[in-house]
Amino acid sequence: MTPRVLRDSLLAAIADWDQSGGVNLAGDTPLISSGRLDSFNLLRLVLWVEEELGRPVDATRIDLAAEWDTVDQIVGFVARHRATNGR
């Protein structure tokens, strides 16, 4: 999956999770620091990343508000970790 497809997939997923339909949602929209994602949707995000990577993520070792605050950051995280995973 290309980064663009991954990005669109995550944008669509978030639009569904927060029932916003994608209103005011872009690649650089703050998700965690702004409070847009509630705690339950944050867990959906963790599971989404794990699904994309095909392996568990130890989220307790990640500063989520700093490293996963936007769709673009999350897509970058997935791309980097896929690369290190040999995919």
Binding site: A15, G21, G22, V23, L25
Partner: peptide, 11 residues
């Protein structure tokens, strides 16, 4: 129904 259809938006 998709949320986008319900809200009249697209992602």
């Amino acid at each position: 129904l998709s949320v986008a259809a319900l809200r009249g938006t697209s992602t």
